[in-house]
Amino acid sequence: GSLMYASIFGNVSAIIQRLYSGTARYHTQMLRVREFIRFHQIPNPLRQRLEEYFQHAWSYTNGIDMNAVLKGFPECLQADICLHLNRSLLQHCKPFRGATKGCLRALAMKFKTTHAPPGDTLVHAGDLLTALYFISRGSIEILRGDVVVAILGKNDIFGEPLNLYARPGKSNGDVRALTYCDLHKIHRDDLLEVLDMYPEFSDHFWSSLEITFNLRDTNMIPGSPGSTELEGGFSRQRKRKLSFRRRTDKDTEQPGEVSALGPGRAGAGPSSRGRPGGPWGESPSSGPSSPESSEDEGPGRSSSPLRLVPFSSPRPPGEPPGGEPLMEDCEKSSDTCNPLSGAFSGVSNIFSFWGDSRGRQYQELPRCPAPTPSLLNIPLSSPGRRPRGDVESRLDALQRQLNRLETRLSADMATVLQLLQRQMTLVPPAYSAVTTPGPGPTSTSPLLPVSPLPTLTLDSLSQVSQFMACEELPPGAPELPQEGPTRRLSLPGQLGALTSQPLHRHGSDPGS
């Protein structure tokens, strides 16, 4: 009898404990919600809404976190579960008819179910419309201010047509639940991603989709105040780019002037030289400038040598048109050559190039014969006009050509200096018209024969001689050997007369 009593008592207590286990969990969670309300000092109306929603959600799901349970299964099984949970929507909604099984599984994985109690606001006026909503159960109302403009029910759709707008718009009203509602919502990016994977279904979906109420604000059109608020930074940046392009296009129409201050000032006329910023005076940081632009901040801005204009002085008759350009485009679109090309026009420029290279940067340069637009006047290309890779490749080509020119210049200078040193070592320090008596009659020769300089066969020296023939050397430049009979510069000019005159010897006659 005691054994029977113990078994009955144990079973009854276990049954009672299981009955009250759900209630215990409910009270535990309710205590957490109330502690949250007390800690954050939530006001009474919002506090009442929180408690009511918790009670309804507990009775609806029995305190089970559906998302946590669903995430515990593998992905393939999750797709089947989501397809079952959203079967009513996918079967009865017209846009989803005719979709393949794979497309429906992908869509079912992207849908999220939302449960809303009465009085809950789903979308506020001015919120971004980031999702498309399908009503599965219940009814909602749409308000503009305090005026109800629409009441939607089961199988209705609200949001915005995503295929017509590249960016999400703003809501033009509040969406509030009238009863307990079940909503299926899919985010904008998720829907577009699935439709991109199934393009054959995309056309059918957009053609058959009928949005019951379009929440997009109709005033959000390009150029409206609301649109400016939504895309303020983007609009200002776009206007700045367009104004920069218009100014650079105007600059290219004036090829007669070359400016070292950047493309923003290349198009300024002579009357605007004294102004601080020219056409860019209202925004000094709008356009890029070269490193020399920092010198323009000092006094005497109108007389600054940074602004270059072609000189009108005539060229000498024998002067060549100019050196070879550094870039391939210089032959086609440049009416002034790079300062480095002028360094190779003569030997005198070679000796004085490194010492006063900055001073020569603004000297007169030889002109190319074609009066085409200036290379320095070409505006900086924006990322939309020329690819970045093209600019980098041009810079690399320019750097390689500069290296080759520097190597060639160093070799030419070394060769010229070597020839000058050899000339100085071969010439005796001094010569006299009267020579010392020699031991015999073989001493009648006034000077030792001097062998002429070897013929220069280097390509670089031939180019130097060509430049010497075309360029007029300055007075202080050293002379180079030329073709024809060679003669030492330090010898007297009348050596031929010395050989014809008898030598005057000093000596005593033994017979006297």
Results as ranks from 00 to 15, higher is better:
Leu152Thr: 03
Ser227Trp: 07
Gly223Lys: 09
Gly173His: 12
Arg247Asn: 09
Gln237Gly: 11
Ala370Gly: 10
Val175Glu: 02
Thr407Glu: 05
Leu376Tyr: 13
Pro371Thr: 09
Glu200Trp: 01
Leu453Ala: 12
Gly438Gln: 04
Gly169Met: 03
Ser224Ala: 11
Ser202Phe: 05
Ser451Gln: 12
Val147Lys: 11
Pro284Ser: 08
Gly232Thr: 11
Ser136Val: 09
Arg301Glu: 08
Ile140Gln: 01
Leu242Thr: 11
Phe213Gly: 03
Thr457Lys: 13
Glu229Pro: 13
Pro492Asn: 08
Pro263Ala: 09
Ala343Tyr: 09
Pro199Ala: 05
Arg246Ala: 08
Met468Tyr: 13
Pro510Met: 06
Ser289Val: 06
Pro478Ile: 06
Pro474Asp: 06
Glu324Gly: 13
Arg505Gln: 10
Thr444Pro: 15
Ala397Pro: 06
Thr425Glu: 07
Cys181Val: 09
Ile157Glu: 03
Thr425Ala: 09
Phe244Pro: 12
Ile350Glu: 04
Thr436Lys: 13
Leu143Asn: 07
His506Phe: 06
Ser393Phe: 07
Arg216Trp: 01
Ser312Cys: 10
Ala411Val: 08
Asp296Gln: 04
Gly262Lys: 14
Leu375Val: 06
His184Pro: 01
Ala414Thr: 12
Ser227Tyr: 11
Pro373Ala: 08
Ser410Gln: 15
Lys170Tyr: 09
Arg358Pro: 09
Leu495Gly: 09
Pro369Phe: 08
Pro454Cys: 09
Pro339Leu: 11
Glu331Ser: 08
Gly153Ser: 09
Leu308Phe: 06
Ser271Asp: 04
Ala343Val: 09
Ala177Pro: 03
Lys332Ser: 10
Ser136Ile: 05
Val427Ser: 08
Leu183Cys: 10
Asn163Ile: 03
Gln418Tyr: 04
Asp329Trp: 02
Ala177Gln: 01
Lys250Leu: 11
Ser341Leu: 05
Cys337Tyr: 08
Arg265Ala: 13
Cys181Ser: 08
Arg404Gln: 05
Glu253Gly: 08
Ile135Asn: 01
Pro502His: 08
His504Tyr: 11
Ser235His: 10
Ala131His: 13
Pro339Asp: 11
Asp146Pro: 13
Ile350Gly: 09
Pro428Cys: 09
Gly269Arg: 13
Gln421Phe: 04
Cys181Phe: 01
Leu178Ala: 11
Leu242Gln: 15
Gly359Phe: 14
Val427Gly: 12
Ser462Cys: 08
Leu191His: 01
Glu200Gly: 06
Asp174Ala: 07
Ser208Gly: 10
Val194Cys: 08
Glu231Ser: 11
Asp182Met: 15
Ser208Arg: 10
Asp459Cys: 05
Gly269Cys: 13
Lys250Asp: 13
Asp203His: 12
Thr372Asp: 07
Thr415Trp: 05
Pro475Asn: 08
Gly233Trp: 06
Leu456Val: 10
Phe244Val: 10
Phe234Met: 12
Asn403Gly: 08
Leu340Pro: 10
Leu195Glu: 02
Glu141Asn: 04
Tyr180Glu: 09
Gln421Pro: 06
Ser462Asn: 11
Gly256Leu: 11
Thr425Tyr: 13
Val175Arg: 02
Gln399Lys: 15
Gly169Ile: 01
Ala497Tyr: 11
Thr372Gln: 10
Arg505Thr: 07
Phe134Glu: 01
Arg167Lys: 10
Glu319Arg: 08
Arg385His: 11
Gly323Thr: 15
Asp174Trp: 07
Met327Gly: 09
Gly493Pro: 12
Asp356Gln: 09
Ala469Asp: 11
Arg246Gly: 13
Ser207Asn: 15
Ser500Gly: 11
Arg216Gln: 03
Leu143Val: 10
Arg367Asn: 11
Ala343His: 15
Gly269Ile: 10
Asn219Asp: 14
Leu480Asn: 10
Glu210His: 10
Thr407Ser: 11
Ser352Asn: 08
Arg301Leu: 09
Leu365Gly: 13
Ala343Pro: 10
Leu162Val: 10
Asp396Lys: 05
Arg422Ala: 07
Pro321His: 15
Phe344Ala: 12
Gln466Trp: 03
Met468Cys: 14
Pro452Trp: 04
